[in-house]
């Protein structure tokens, strides 16, 4: 019996190992699909942030200070970008504001694109109430800032608005519905 069981045991162990490898691969695929399904190639990002309350608390507790959006692009072969938000603020906005930043990411076609990045950037917090009083700010990239140079790492330093919206305005208006906020870039 030992003779016949030993190879089976080896096989079972191998299958267990393969199962965990596949589980990890499936989780990776899930994440990839999620990114692909929400990617935009027209230069406009709509970022849906669920579980605002929990994420805000995590930011206050300094567990997770910031969140990154899925990447988006100015075109199929254009600039790769994303947004970064600090629900409990960063810099001058720390503890009082939501800070919203724009990030230029290293993309597949950077070698063919003009640098520094010069496109106008509009950041918006969407009002989900009937008055649709979206809050927005716009900037033109500072050509001397390292944030808009051709990325040497996966991401450049985020640049944007530390005082984007005060937490009291955000939390008393109709910007949060179903514990969800929408950011448009």
């Amino acid at each position: 019996t030992t003779h016949t069981l030993a190879p089976l045991e080896t096989q079972l162990n191998r299958h267990d190992d393969m199962l965990s490898v596949h589980e990890i691969r499936l989780a990776d695929m899930d994440l990839r699909f999620q990114v692909l399904e929400t990617a935009s190639y027209n230069g406009t990002l709509i970022w849906k942030i669920r579980d605002y309350k929990r994420r805000k608390q995590e930011a206050v507790a300094a567990k997770t200070l910031s969140l990154y959006s899925q990447p988006f692009y100015t075109g199929y072969f254009g600039y790769k970008m994303c947004a970064r938000v600090y629900l409990n603020g960063d810099g001058m906005g720390k503890g009082t504001h939501l800070s919203l930043f724009f990030v230029v990411m290293r993309g597949e076609y950077d070698a063919l694109l003009p640098w520094p990045f010069k496109q106008k950037v509009t950041l918006m917090l969407m009002d989900q109430g009937p008055s649709r009083k979206h809050l927005g700010d716009a900037f033109k990239p500072d050509p001397n800032s390292s944030s808009f140079r051709r990325p040497a790492a996966e991401m450049n330093i985020a640049s944007g608005c530390p005082l984007f919206v005060s937490q009291s305005v955000l939390e008393t208006g109709s910007y949060i519905k179903d514990d969800t906020i929408f950011i448009k870039v």
């Binding site: 500072d142 944007g160 608005c161 530390p162």
Partner: peptide, 15 residues
């Protein structure tokens, strides 16, 4: 349209 000056994020950690 008014444009503001973009300010760099002060945080250098990557979550």
């Amino acid at each position: 349209q008014q444009f503001s000056m973009p300010i760099q994020c002060t945080d250098r950690t990557d979550e």
